[in-house]
Amino acid sequence: MKKVILIITLLLIWSDPALAGTMYVKSFKARLLSIPSFKGKTVSTVGRGGAVEQLKRKGRWALVEHNGEKGWVSRYSISKRQPMKRVSRLKKSRVKRKARRRASAFISAAAARGLTDYDRTRKGEKGFAVDFDALEVMKSIEINEDEAVTFIAEGVGR
């Protein structure tokens, strides 16, 4: 009986479910390094969505295996979940913006009476100012991931 308790205890202690199992690369690529440090040599590179088997963790690093090659990867680059496709509210937002303008035109007639319910909820109970036009400008800047990654790579000499 005591042996059974001992074995169960040891199994519970040693089997950390967070360690073992398949992880997925979330960053656009992940370098597998020879040691758990950026000083290590690149053993292999795995692209986004690539499945790796996590074998061990050390600090911010995970030892993983991919296509028979083992290497250390930053834990911030991998996840237990497969990467999702990019989610965008751009089209909906434009539609909503038009609706907002219509609503604004509608409520402006009653503005003399003070803030309408619509304005009050937009600004919040504390009366924070809002600038949805500047937000639209912010959202209008289109730069794809490849362009941005290449820009950085050129700057840092990679």
Partner: peptide, 30 residues
């Protein structure tokens, strides 16, 4: 943006977007 207002400088804004989006590609939220 309502509290501080955006700084209107297209070149600088595009630049920080290039750096920011490039860095974000190394993150775990594609």
């Amino acid at each position: 943006l309502g509290r501080f207002r955006a700084y209107d400088n297209e070149k600088a804004t595009r630049y920080i977007n290039l750096i920011g989006k490039g860095l974000a590609s190394y993150s775990n939220r594609p």
